[in-house]
């Protein structure tokens, strides 16, 4: 296997993504966990760039590390911000053994699933103008799912408004 620039970049990004994930599980403070998660999100966006899906990468940064992690940070800072993890629960030897088995099985399944996977040859022109390609696909082949998604979003909006309205009324009643 030749070492290309892409390979080095992939190694670096994958390493950061995995370290971010491990830190997310192992860090003690909640805010630190979210920051570790941000690094994972960013390096996944980097991997999308390597796969020449620039639009997806940018949207990943915009939505995950831009919006979602900030909402999480806000939520943590405004609520139980001094919460710390109480360390590992003890668990018996059996539990650890089962955990190890589970990890092994997961690894084996993925190894078998991925090692000989063949997607066929990828179309060569994917990286050219991919926002335009995505737009054309979205509005010609997948119009109905797309519109249904917008209905779902609308429902979520209305739900959020209804929830916050209820709170206000209850508080007014209390006073």
């Amino acid at each position: 296997m030749t070492v290309s620039g892409e390979f080095i970049a992939f190694l670096a990004l994958a390493l950061v993504a995995i370290i971010g994930g491990v830190l997310l599980l192992n860090l003690k403070k909640v805010v630190h966990m979210v920051v570790a998660l941000v690094f994972t999100f960013l390096s996944i966006a980097g991997i999308y760039v390597l796969l020449s899906a620039e639009f997806l990468a940018v949207v990943q940064i915009l939505v995950y590390s831009g919006a979602i992690s900030i909402i999480m940070l806000f939520g943590i800072m405004l609520t139980k911000h001094n919460d710390e993890d109480e360390g590992d629960s003890k668990g018996g030897g059996w539990r650890k053994a089962f955990l190890f088995l589970g990890v092994l099985a997961f690894g084996a399944v993925f190894y078998i699933g991925i090692y000989n996977l063949d997607f066929g040859s990828a179309p060569a022109a994917l990286h050219e103008n991919n926002p335009e390609q995505i737009g054309i696909e979205l509005y010609s082949k997948y119009v109905i799912p797309f519109e249904l998604m917008s209905v779902l979003l609308l429902v979520a909006f209305v739900g959020a408004i209804v929830l916050s309205r209820n709170d206000e009324k209850e508080e007014a009643d209390k006073e």
Binding site: V35, V38, L42, E54, F55, V58, V59, I61, L62, S65, G66, A67, S69, I70, L73, P131
Partner: peptide, 12 residues
């Protein structure tokens, strides 16, 4: 879009 997305990281 790249500009907008990356500049969002500064907020964090």
């Amino acid at each position: 879009l790249y500009y907008i997305a990356i500049s969002g990281i500064t907020i964090i």
